[in-house]
Nucleic acid binder design. Structure first.
Lengths: 174, 174
DNA sequence: GCAAATTGTTATCAGTTATAATAATCAGAA
DNA sequence: TTCTGATTATTATAACTGATAACAATTTGC
């Protein structure tokens, strides 16, 4: 079902590795820039891909004025209504001090709200407002149609699923 | 040769999607946090994976005091000696204004140097110093042994190659 | 020869991320 | 129960990244 197409990926190692500097002939202007050691580095490929995908995400969420971090907060709260603030920030890997302003903004826009946590007066239980629920649902629908579908077309949806599984493995590092 | 293992990736859509808020029962404390909509989003998986891989990179480069951006600059110069400053920054997607301080640092550490560009007195031709050459080679060797090999073991080296090819496709997004 | 573009640089600003400190509250041990 | 230590949300702050604008020197094209 999933056909890994390795066609244009070959010849990677051969391209650089030997760092011979002939200072007499500076790299030609019309030539393509050789990525050298970067060609094999997963971190580099990840960074470039993440930047490109986030750019597309941000572009698509322009009408919603929603950046990736904000979307992720709404999504977590929607899936776990009543979760306390520290657990939401922890789940997203966001420092809880920095999470305050992020949530302030969402609360100011009436998309989320802090509620008293029953049994612990220190913590806030977080909920989406009704407006937040429909807003998130619409944003998600828009993303599916415009953002994710575009990625499906670029990668093939089977390969995209496989990509997701590989990325999840990487997230478990240390 | 490449066997896409889709085992634990199934049931993604089913997990959330229905955002039913039962405000009466706040999300339990001992329960795992449900990622909800984030489960299907490629951008989220990419971000978490990139963060994890960069953390491992930085950890492994601690003795070299070399961060990803610095490594990438050295790698580009090594593979394209004499390339002018603006082309290096452009190749890495780094704003040329921000590139100045980055290169200043590498020059202060005697790893790279700005040289006069023959035929254009505006631009700098960039080279690694001999120290820079050996430093980069050692850093790369260390990365291969400790960083990339670990990723190979985590993903399987065939799947890692396939992952690289998918990430490169994503980087082409507008 | 002159207007427009390029190159490196500085200054600046918004956004992100990490740390420390603090007040309120909770939990557990003496 | 009281007291000590941990947790929670918050503020303030600093470091770092990324983008923009302005500028001088230089090159390019008409």
């Amino acid at each position: 079902m999933i056909k890994p197409k390795q066609k244009s990926v070959s010849g990677r190692q051969a391209s650089s590795a030997q760092v011979a500097d002939d200072e007499a002939s500076p790299a030609a202007a019309g030539t393509e820039v050789d990525l050298g050691y970067l060609n094999g580095l997963l971190g580099y490929a990840l960074r470039r891909a993440q930047l490109a995908v986030f750019q597309d995400f941000i572009q698509n969420m322009k009408d919603f004025d929603l950046r990736p971090a904000q979307f992720s907060v709404l999504a977590i709260i929607a899936a776990n209504p009543g979760l306390k603030q520290s657990r939401v920030s922890e789940a997203l890997g966001i420092n809880r001090a920095n999470f305050v302003a992020l949530l302030d903004e969402l609360e100011k826009r009436k998309l989320a709200r802090r509620a008293a946590s029953p049994g612990d007066r220190r913590s806030n239980a977080l909920y989406l407002t009704p407006k937040g629920e429909s807003f998130l649902a619409e944003a998600y629908r828009h993303l599916q149609i415009h953002h994710e579908r575009r990625l499906d077309e670029l990668l093939g949806s089977a390969d995209k699923q496989f990509l997701l599984s590989l990325l999840r493995k990487l997230s478990t590092l240390s």
